[in-house]
Structures are given as structure tokens and as C-alpha cells.
């Protein structure tokens, strides 16, 4: 972190936190991403909307190379993470990810779900890791559930622990892959509240989600994808009231009805 600030002071201009350029991805002969260009500036929250199958989750998963891009580049604070010889594990600890199905480790309690990477990746001592885990769990309002196992937590609580697991590593950007889609409707609110709080703390976030109201209220920009392309990229007010593309209008008409 301190190293990064130093270069900022010297260089003056900050590279965007995340930048995708000319990104392509195909599975066999099927092209799921074509010519994606997207920039997420520091502290921004960018929402990605689109029908299922439009490629939005694949794009998100390319950002930490859970999916391997077929062509194009991805820059994290100016560093090309697809370059040869790059240490992927070092990159990934700076990119937090939250999954649709939480993917908490069922054999570990909430605290150890958070501390595992702190201990094994950052090599922190037990006390320091516990301290960080407590503060991350506190941030998502679950410090009092630290010794509960995932099976003993509600879906909303599990997803909040998953967010704590990611933010404890102090990432420079957080990726959210439909974080509320697997939740019962009454549990969506608590997860959104946590995301709103992260936004207030100026966390940089790229969010794939269907929560339109939240997007409209909190996003800095909204991106719309169709057929593996980004067809619209606008501030939320403009996106929701006067979209420029026909496909965006059709999508909005269908989903906001």
C-alpha cells in the first residue's frame, strides 16, 4: 500500500484501478466476450447489467483470471495481469471476489474462513490475523457470529462473511458476481447494506447484479452488456432515463415493469 502511494506522489497521474482492453473470450467456437473495453477508476462503483448469457459473469471472472481471456489485456493499477511471468496469486490477493453461492469453507467457522488467507497468503501471525478478521467481521456486522460455521448461518449472513473474507485482505478492487441472486428476498437488504457501506468507504467495486434500484441509487456508472459486448456505459441517471441503445431500452422496459 505505502509503495503504491509513493509512486502516486511521484508520478502524479494515477492509473485506473482496473482496465480491460480489447478483451475476448471464447469457449470452443462460442464467443462469449468480444472487444470489451472497460475502465474502473479508483473509488468508483461500476454496475454491470445484462440478460443471463450476455457474458457479464465471464467478464468479471476474467478480471482475476478465474477464466483465462482468449485475447486482450487487463490492467490492475497499470500492471498487465495477463503478462507472462506475472505471479497470479500475488495479483489475486489484491482483488477481492464475492460469489453468487458464497463458497464459504464449510469445515471452518466464520473467523477461520476470514483468517485462512491472512495466515497462508499474507503469512500473518495468529493474533494479527484474528484481529483483522474481527474487524472485517465487525464491518459486516457479524463479529458476534465469528465462531459459527457456515451451516449455522443464514444465506445473508454467509454472504456477509464472504465479503469479510475478501475485504480482510485489503484489496484494491472488489468483484461481486451476482451477490444477492441466491438469497431469499428478505435477506437481500442486509447484503446491499454492507455493499453501500463499502461504497461510503470509497472501495472500488465492479458489480454484476440484477438489483436495479441499488444500481440507480449507488452506482457511479452503469454498463449494459448484450451478446458479449458492452453496448451502453453511462452514469445511472442517464442510463435509466434516457438510454441511447434500443436493446438497453428493451431490457429496462422488461425488468423495471
Amino acid at each position: 500500500m505505502s509503495e503504491m502511494n509513493a509512486t502516486d506522489r511521484v508520478g502524479g497521474t494515477k492509473p485506473p484501478t482496473l482496465q480491460l482492453s480489447g478483451l475476448h473470450k471464447s469457449f470452443g467456437t462460442v464467443e462469449v466476450l468480444r472487444e470489451i473495453d472497460l475502465t474502473v477508476e479508483r473509488g468508483q462503483m461500476v454496475f454491470v447489467l445484462g440478460r443471463s448469457g450476455s457474458g457479464k459473469s465471464t467478464m468479471l471472472r476474467c478480471c482475476n483470471r478465474l477464466e483465462e481471456p482468449s485475447a486482450g489485456s487487463i490492467f490492475l493499477e497499470g500492471q498487465d495481469i495477463c503478462a507472462r511471468g506475472v505471479d497470479l496469486d500475488k495479483i489475486r490477493r489484491r482483488i477481492g471476489m464475492v460469489f453468487q453461492s458464497f463458497n464459504l469453507y464449510p469445515h471452518l467457522d466464520a473467523r477461520r474462513n476470514v483468517t485462512l488467507a491472512l495466515r497462508k497468503v499474507l503469512k500473518l501471525g495468529r493474533d494479527e490475523a484474528d484481529e483483522r478478521a474481527t474487524s472485517a467481521l465487525d464491518r459486516v456486522g457479524l463479529a458476534n457470529r465469528a465462531d459459527h460455521y457456515p451451516g449455522q448461518l443464514s444465506g445473508g449472513q454467509q454472504q456477509r462473511v464472504a465479503i469479510a473474507r475478501a475485504i480482510a485482505l485489503q484489496p484494491v478492487v472488489m468483484l461481486f458476481d451476482e451477490p444477492t441472486s441466491a438469497l431469499d428476498p428478505e435477506l437481500v437488504g442486509e447484503v446491499i447494506a454492507v455493499m453501500r457501506e463499502l461504497k461510503d468507504l470509497h472501495m472500488t467495486m465492479l458489480v454484476v447484479s440484477h438489483e436495479m434500484a441499488f444500481a440507480r441509487e449507488a452506482a457511479d456508472r452503469v454498463v449494459f452488456m448484450a451478446d458479449g459486448r458492452i453496448v451502453e456505459d453511462a452514469p445511472p441517471e442517464q442510463f435509466f432515463t434516457q438510454p441511447s441503445e434500443e436493446s438497453t431500452r428493451a431490457f429496462l422496459a422488461r425488468y423495471s415493469a
Binding site: N64, L66, D89, K90, I91, R92, R93, R94, I95, G96, M97, F99, S101, N103, L104, Y105, L116, A117, K120, V121, A162, R165, A166, L169
Partner: peptide
Amino acid sequence: KGQWEAARSTGMGFSQTLVWV
């Protein structure tokens, strides 16, 4: 598969994920 992905996304290596997760 999600268990592998979650662990790898936090920067844990293949062997670490295998052993600890």
C-alpha cells in the same frame, strides 16, 4: 468447484488450496 475458486481468488496457491480447503 466453487471452493477452489473462492480459495484461489484470495491468492492461495494450488497446493495451499488443496491442503487447507
